[in-house]
């Protein structure tokens, strides 16, 4: 299948849009009519054909526009990409994982040729043809993690595993839901999750960490997380919150369907072979409410979820002030009919 890449922006005029296909394959995160934190993890071993779960690293119509946006964020703020000195090996592990996966999963878009340590990487959509020496940093224009994640959608955290904990010791983070890599780098699993309400008391992080520490090479896992974003803005960083925060106040009942987006993160977890680190890709999918409600089940369900979500979660996710307007809008699409179990459209 060839992908038609969109010419679109995630800032200024916000020309981002989803095709019908992108709407149909959107990873709607709610399998029932209510939401609470849970240890929602499963094996990442593919999924229905055409779904975002099918490939190890999903490439979609937003690929080129997202990579342009990332380059702009990095030009403005290089601190969004950092790697502590002991994480270079894990960076090579990640480069290999992405190059091998993408060239196998999308042979028409990506090619990898390997002769010993002499590698050649071809990224057709981005027009890149790079010969380099694997494990030789001087042979690439950036460090290995930065090099490959400038060509891969989604944020990436690389976690060092030691003392029965995970340490956020490297990352490429330009599309985050309001947390700072520069602030969190070097923290452990419990420290970087400190601001999350309720989940600590529910024992979720203790159980989740146990699961993650045991992830084996070749058996990746995945989960979904979600929040809401006004305008299709990828860079909802705390660094720039003083600029984008005010956009939340621009919602009106008339523009809400177009401006308000559900933001879903497909989070995956891969063990890396040489470093024994864990890589945590966080792939962000955006959908405007007006597109989301074109799937009747999703419209009904999102209405019920947002109406009933505990205040603490609505506050943490940053939409408590807009919630009444959102629920009002969505109520038009909820006829009270029963919804079928599971996330898929009926």
């Amino acid at each position: 299948m060839t992908i038609q890449f969109n010419d679109e922006t995630f800032r200024d005029d916000y020309s981002f849009h989803n095709s019908d296909r992108a709407i149909q394959r959107f990873p709607f995160p709610f399998h029932e009519d209510s939401y609470m934190y849970s240890v929602n993890m499963e094996r990442h071993k593919g999924g229905p054909e055409g779904s975002v779960y099918e490939m190890r690293f999903d490439v979609d119509e937003h690929y080129l526009a997202e990579m342009k946006d990332r380059a702009m964020v990095l030009a403005e703020d290089p601190l969004r990409c950092q790697s502590l000195p002991h994480m270079t090996l894990a960076g090579w592990d990640l480069l290999e994982l992405i190059m091998v996966s993408k060239s196998e999963d999308y042979p028409d878009l990506f090619e990898l040729h390997r002769e010993g340590s002499n590698w050649r990487w071809i990224n057709r959509p981005m027009g890149i043809d790079q010969s380099f020496v694997f494990m030789d940093e001087a042979s690439l224009p950036y460090g290995p993690m930065e090099y490959i994640t400038r060509q891969a959608q989604g944020d990436f955290c690389i976690l060092d595993q030691r003392d029965d904990n995970l340490w956020m010791d490297a990352g490429m983070v330009t599309t985050q839901a309001d947390w700072s890599l520069d602030f969190d780098i070097g923290m452990n699993f419990f420290e970087w999750h400190a601001p999350v309400p309720k989940a600590h008391e529910m024992g979720i992080f203790v159980r989740a960490l146990k699961f993650l520490l045991n992830i084996q090479q070749g058996s990746p896992a995945r989960r979904l997380n979600w929040t809401l974003t006004v305008n299709p803005l990828l860079d909802t960083s705390p660094e720039n919150y003083h600029k984008w925060g005010v956009q939340k106040t621009t919602l009106t009942p008339e523009n809400l369907g177009r401006k308000q987006h559900l933001r879903v993160e497909l989070q995956t977890f891969f063990r890396l072979p040489r470093s024994n680190a864990l890589v945590f890709p966080i792939r962000c999918y955006l959908i405007a409410f007006e597109d989301l409600v074109s799937v009747p089940k999703w419209g009904r369900r999102l209405h019920r979820v947002l109406r009933d979500i505990p205040d603490e979660l609505a506050t943490y996710k940053g939409f408590i002030d807009n919630r009444p307007m959102l629920v009002d809008y969505l109520s038009q699409y909820d006829d009270g009919a029963e919804t079928s179990p599971g996330v898929w459209p009926d």
Binding site: F183, E191, P195, P238
Partner: peptide
Amino acid sequence: HYSRRLAAFQGVR
């Protein structure tokens, strides 16, 4: 929210 690396708390607008 506190970063030991920075030995600082976080300030947000």
